[in-house]
Amino acid sequence: MFSSSVTRRRVAFAFVLPAFVLLLAISIYPLLRTLGLAFSSLELTVSPAESFVGFDNFAKAFQDVRFWNAMGNTLVLVIVGVAIQLVLGVGLALLLSEIGFTRVVWLTALLLPVMIAPVVSGFQFRVIYNDTFGPLNYLIKTISGGFVTGPPWLADTRTALLTIMMTDVWQWTPFMMLLALAGLESIPVELTEAAEVDGAGYWGAFWRIKIPILLPVIVIGLLIRVMDTFKTFDLVFLLTGGGPGSSTETIAFYTYLNGFRFFSMGYTAAIAFIQLIVIIVIARIFLVVQKRMRGGEIQ
């Protein structure tokens, strides 16, 4: 005889079991396997034999100039690129919130870049940035009456990373705009009207009412974009291949090279885990900030 509570627990366990097994198979096991690999040497180029090497792979990563260069490039894209997306996105959302019946048309047009696959936008911009027949340098030359010649965007170490950032900004600013617009739409009209009655003016209402209410939404948008930009691969692969030199290698691209070109699986696992830790720390910071905002600690 089983008590009814034991039976209930077993039924509950039976219901949870498939999900638990699935999670174990597709999420927990690969993660643990990768963690195990990070402490091993597995050079598939020469042999499938795996040997334990302790923290060697992590030590190698911290001494690897190329790893730090890739990390630096990634952080530039994350910090500068996402900041530009934020400013432009919020600005566009404010403009759209002021527009009347043509807003749908503008919104649809502005959202087009988000709908395009990054692979396609990569090819588009490879043509746009082309020094010889690309429209960008043609426009620069035409507008300046022939006095200014555009740089070889993808072939110059000073501009190559910028081109990747510009492409990313073009593609993902509409995403930030959409989130900000949704946030603006949720602000009760009474609040802004009351502010106006109190003589706050447009910018007063913007800084004291709209921005505080928007902040939690913006933080979530930033978190999504930061995590996404941290994994930038496709644009680098298509536009520059990591060059010229190593000037546009991102951490995701460098991980790909080690994993799928060199099949150096232990080292790849180690640098993948370092990335995971960095992303978790960033996400944690954002979530704490967002929680404090919701709790009203940040005004």
């Binding site: 082309n130 020094d131 070889p152 993808l154 072939a155 110059d156 010229p244």
Partner: peptide, 8 residues
Amino acid sequence: APPDVLNF
């Protein structure tokens, strides 16, 4: 060489 030769 052309200015964008590093992307050739």
